[in-house]
């Protein structure tokens, strides 16, 4: 049996999705109230990280393997860049072209053009990045061969 005791596991099961929902709220309402892509993305990553901590690596890693995470990292960053580049059609790099076409209504979700979309892209990027940092640090192993010390990443146990 990997991971921690049944108490921690059960509490994690109760709360992981709640944390995820809160992160999603911060991201999607980032242009309306306190929050944003960075804060929300970190909290989204937390819901995965506590699952790894509670259940042990094997259970969770196959839900989001390292290779897939590394791809998502690139894709999130690329999505932000593409959003910005499409602004070229609106005249300038980073111009808010969606808002020019469809302004929406202030204080509502669909109101700030590319800003919520950019928040989502950043959240994806930050979430996956933090997950990868955690993964890298958690799977780091120090091995000694004579007086040579090696740090290598291995699969999480």
């Amino acid at each position: 049996m990997t991971g921690m005791t049944v108490i921690v596991k059960t509490i994690t099961r109760w709360t992981a999705a709640l944390i995820f929902l809160y992160g999603a709220y911060l991201v999607l309402y980032g242009h309306l109230s306190v929050g944003g892509g960075f804060a929300g993305g970190i909290i989204l990553a937390c819901s995965y990280v506590i699952m790894i901590l509670a259940y042990g690596g094997k259970e969770t890693i196959h839900a989001l393997p390292k290779a897939v995470a590394a791809r998502l990292d690139s894709i999130g960053a690329l999505a932000f860049l593409i959003l910005a580049s499409l602004g070229m059609f609106g005249g300038f790099f980073f111009s808010n072209w969606i808002r020019d076409i469809w302004p929406g209504q202030q204080f509502r979700v669909f109101s700030a053009g590319i800003i919520p979309l950019a928040n989502i892209a950043i959240a994806l990027k930050v979430c996956v990045s933090l997950f990868l940092i955690f993964f890298i640090l958690a799977s780091l192993r120090m091995t000694r061969k004579g007086d040579k010390i090696e740090f290598r990443s291995e699969e999480v146990d």
Partner: peptide, 17 residues
């Protein structure tokens, strides 16, 4: 002008894939 930044940046995100 922004292409001087956007081109290598975009490739920097794509090439690691």
């Amino acid at each position: 002008l922004p292409l001087a930044i956007a081109i290598p940046l975009g490739m920097g995100f794509i090439l690691p894939l």
